[in-house]
């Protein structure tokens, strides 16, 4: 707990901190101790936000959840075994300033790519798990992201495991050009083969899930759920406004409108996610094979 208290917030989008000091004057309070909720504007203890699965203790806003913390929170204790943690982008196109951006993303997120993959038990059920991290270059999909996702579905097919995935992505990663776009086809192929083999895939779409990830593995699950208020779209509101030059209907691209339009099975707040995922994993558990 104390450790969490002094951890620096990783990203200003995820936790907006100010120097607001709701404390007796004369006592120095480091600003990162407090988080100002972007929705209700209340200044709340960062540790409370973290302990509350990165939701606002005051209004319930679902903030961005760092991938590793999310795994610790959703998986059974000490059950996560990370797969392919050492895969790193090689900057295949030698794109200007990309290497520096990768290094900055590593520092900001503490991870080496925009997705963590591995196996874990959830409610006692062995599961293949991927969790994307918006703090790593806005969760964009590079070749390594696609490679880890494809490997995970192939691994799950071989080991006869269900797949649970949390998406968070700004879309394709332009610094990897067409190699990034091809990951949409690659991951879709892996999902399709896994699905054709009878595998069960549950996707939990979190804020933001957009572009190339929406147009591939985010929208290819057997059960597709989302977090409240999450932006889930192909094109972001700003891009649409620029294209059609008119005001957008409120809520366009938010989880609630996708549910209404028929693109989600369910919106599941964080405090109910573990129960929901375990229930779905049990419902799709295959009978033990004979012999």
């Amino acid at each position: 707990m104390i450790k969490g208290l002094f951890k620096k917030p990783r990203n200003e989008l995820e936790l907006s901190t100010t120097g607001a000091k709701p404390a007796p004057s004369g006592v120095y309070i480091p600003p990162e101790l407090f988080t100002v909720c972007p929705r209700c504007k209340k200044s709340v203890f960062t540790s409370d936000v973290q302990e509350n699965a990165y939701t606002c203790p005051n209004c319930g806003l679902h903030m961005r959840f760092p991938a590793r913390q999310r795994i610790a929170w959703i998986a059974d204790p000490d059950s996560f075994v990370e797969l392919w943690p050492d895969l790193k982008s090689s900057d295949p196109l030698n794109f200007p300033e990309y290497k520096e951006k990768l290094e900055a993303a590593e520092r900001a997120s503490g991870e080496s790519e925009s997705v963590l993959t591995g196996t874990a038990r959830i409610g006692g059920i062995e599961t293949a798990l991927f969790v994307m991290d918006a703090a790593f270059m806005m969760g964009s999909m590079g070749t390594v992201t696609g490679e880890k996702i494809a490997r995970l579905f192939e691994h799950a097919a071989e080991e006869d495991l269900p797949v649970v995935g949390f998406t968070a992505s700004g879309g394709a990663r332009m610094q990897e050009g067409m190699l990034s776009l091809m990951q949409m086809a690659k991951t879709s192929g892996a999902v399709k083969r896994f699905s054709d083999a009878g595998g069960f895939y549950l996707a939990m779409l979190t804020d933001p899930t957009t572009g190339g990830v929406t147009a591939s593995f985010a929208m290819e699950a057997d059960v597709t759920a989302a977090e409240p208020g999450a932006l889930i779209c192909f094109a972001g509101p700003r891009v649409i406004e620029q294209t059609i030059r008119q005001k957008l209907p409120p809520g366009l691209g938010r989880a609630e409108s996708l549910l209404k339009n028929g693109f989600l099975d369910k919106i599941v707040p964080r405090d109910q996610q573990k129960k929901f995922i375990v229930r779905m994993l049990r419902a799709h558990k295959k009978p033990r094979r004979e012999g």
Partner: peptide, 21 residues
Amino acid sequence: AFCGIGAEERGQGRAIAENLM
């Protein structure tokens, strides 16, 4: 692919994803 209100409301992402699969 078109970026517009109707395209989003009718699931542009899902439509493309389904074709890829």
